[in-house]
Write a protein that binds this DNA or RNA. Structure first.
Lengths: 218, 218
DNA sequence: AGTCAACCTGAAACATGATTCAGGTTGTGG
DNA sequence: CCACAACCTGAATCATGTTTCAGGTTGACT
């Protein structure tokens, strides 16, 4: 359930139950520390302290600070995607699916606001890992859009690949502005305001070009 | 022409012609060094070396490493916006303006790919500066969209503020994926592929909901 | 009730780099 | 051609933090 796509670093060592647990502790601590302080302010000492583990132990499980960061990003990637696909399960039309997918994305972001930050920081800490993250999300999207297109569910003139990236962009900045920034003021978990969500969905609904109006091309 | 909005750091000191020149040299060097290495890999020594100036001199012009970074982001912000509004000048309809604005944005990004990176890194180095950057861009957008709305040029049901952020997101991720990543392979200046651009504009055109089809509300 | 992997530990080695400071240089106005 | 701002300099000071290492601890198995 976890050993699937990972395969990026994770020093290979036997790992008995005890070891497994320690490793998990470290990853969990890293999540909190990186999220709160950012990559460069975070230190191995802080991570091991948070995990309640000796400093030296860290290097039994991860080669470097960067290695644990990369593992963390991949872990988060799986979790967001799960959150999205869970929400999308029942959807029948593409627009329904889209609405559900975004709801899942925002739910995850609202629940783990700081984690969003970790992912974005990957752009500077480990670009290849960030690419992986984005590409895995986009790929699902692209397929969904292509299928919707052959079902006549959305505008056939759109390029699914381009549209998928455009949708990611919308989600990313709307999430950043209306979930994370607004949240900073108080401390509430705060879901995305309904009006904002609806307005965004109208934008997207338009963009994908619903069923009707497939008339001429100018 | 430059002293307008700046006002964020820039230690206040007399500054004769000679000093002015040195300061400009430092900012220019910072641009190159930050762009190439990122904030944390960049060092004051590297910046002063690139500028051909003594290490200590740096601190006569900037309080800290962070201060020069912030000045740089604000400077870039002005330049992108100029690039966008230059391009938008002749446009009559909102869609035309949109197309031109994006063209300007991508032109700037293509010409200064590394600078894009500096701006995005501001999210981690100086969040308030990043907010300023985004908000200055969005504000122009929002006004344009609101005006277009009262002219009946775009879907009246959209919230201009939300739509503006959505558009920013589209530009940001499309630029990142199709300009910066594709570019990395070879080294060409490479403008955004026409097909990609057109496809993105179709998406946006749809999203803003052109003149026709203003029918019912469900 | 001993043995041996596997696991854990934190002080110290090493590296890096921002910032300061005591003292030099430049060039302009008189 | 003197004097004094304004300007410049880079070695030394501090601070921080990753990574290593020599030596303990634990617990499953016999």
């Amino acid at each position: 359930m976890t050993t699937d796509e990972q395969s990026l670093s994770t020093a290979g060592r036997p790992l008995t139950a005890r070891g497994e647990k320690t490793r998990a502790r470290l990853l969990d601590a890293a999540e909190h520390v990186f999220a709160e302080l950012g990559y460069h302010e975070a230190s191995i000492v802080k991570i091991t302290e948070h995990a309640g583990i000796g400093l030296g132990t860290f290097y039994l499980y991860f080669e470097t600070k960067q290695a644990i960061f990369e593992d963390l990003v991949l872990d988060l990637n799986q979790r967001v995607r799960r959150s999205m696909s869970e929400e999308m399960e029942g959807a029948t039309t593409r627009i329904e699916a889209e609405r559900a997918g975004f709801a899942g994305f925002f739910r995850f972001t609202a629940e783990h606001p700081a984690l969003y930050r970790v992912v974005r920081e990957a752009e500077f800490v480990s670009p290849p890992t960030l690419k992986l993250h984005y590409e895995r999300i986009v790929e699902g999207y692209r397929q969904g859009l292509a299928r919707a297109q052959s079902d006549g569910d959305i505008d056939p003139r759109l390029d699914p690949h381009v549209a998928a990236w455009a949708l990611m962009g919308v989600g990313e900045l709307i999430g950043m502005r209306f979930l994370l920034w607004d949240r900073d003021v108080n401390g509430a978990p705060a879901a995305l305001d309904d009006e904002v969500f609806d307005s965004m969905m109208r934008f997207i609904d338009n963009a994908l070009g619903g069923r009707r109006t497939q008339g001429g091309d100018e």
